[in-house]
Amino acid sequence: MDLFIAIFTGTAIAATPLIFAALGELVVEKSGVLNLGIEGMMLVGAAAAFWAVIAGLPMPVAILAGALAGAAASLLFGVLALTFLTNQYAAGLALAIFGSGVSAFLGRGFGSAPIDALKRIHIPLLSDIPVIGPMFFRFDPMVYFAILMFFVISWFLYRTKSGLILRTIGESPETSHAIGYPVIRIRYLAVLFGGLMAGLAGAYLSVAYTPLWVENMTAGKGWISLALVVFATWRPLRILLGAWLFGGMTILQLQGQALGLAVPSELLSALPYLATIIVLVIISQNRQTLSLHFPASLAKPFRPAT
């Protein structure tokens, strides 16, 4: 039973950065922009938050610093992709490489000591319920915040006019422009939001999940988040489910290593990547579903005619 609870809670925690990053990217892609640079934004966010903690700033400020750093990084991509109409694949890759460099540079003085992680909160009364308590009510606040963001983004995309505007820009920026919406400005906002969320994801990794500084500590989580958006066929609920699936995979692999299974640890470590490929293949088979929610203008440069 304890093992089960450990796997369950471990899954929820491991899924949290993926949920942040993938929900952020979902909003970006729904607006028709493809930012491949999540890995870079997460790393920058992770480094900024870690730095803030070392500098003695309070935890909420540190997490905010991570989010803002992610947003600042996304702005570089935004200027290239939205103002200079650069190939979005190239601009995203540039951001991924740049972000990993900047974070490594920032992190050169962080040392290898762990920091005091973000505190878990025991919700009064509820957390004392046997089994249920430890399973659901003893997480750090960011785990709950990630789930709250899922509800907020679902509501925003499908229940508000702004969400409708965002989605329709993703279908056809030409039409949105023709009926008078500021396409570029809205896409900038979406890209910034994506950066904010990726920064949060990175901050969570460095100040809550690990919590220590390792160069390139995201280890592909940014890319997995990107895969999650495809996996989810651009729907928020499936992002949540997908993130838990991958979180579970990570935890099972760690548990497997801890239990000393007679399998090379490298093979276990490779499982999440292997699973990503397999899931992508399966999802790609249903072209109908893919095309139904796919933002038709994704990654196509747009410049309003004057």
Binding site: I97, F98, G101, V102, R108
Partner: peptide, 11 residues
Amino acid sequence: SLTRIFQGILL
């Protein structure tokens, strides 16, 4: 890591 920063900026 300055190398990667320069690479990124150049690109």
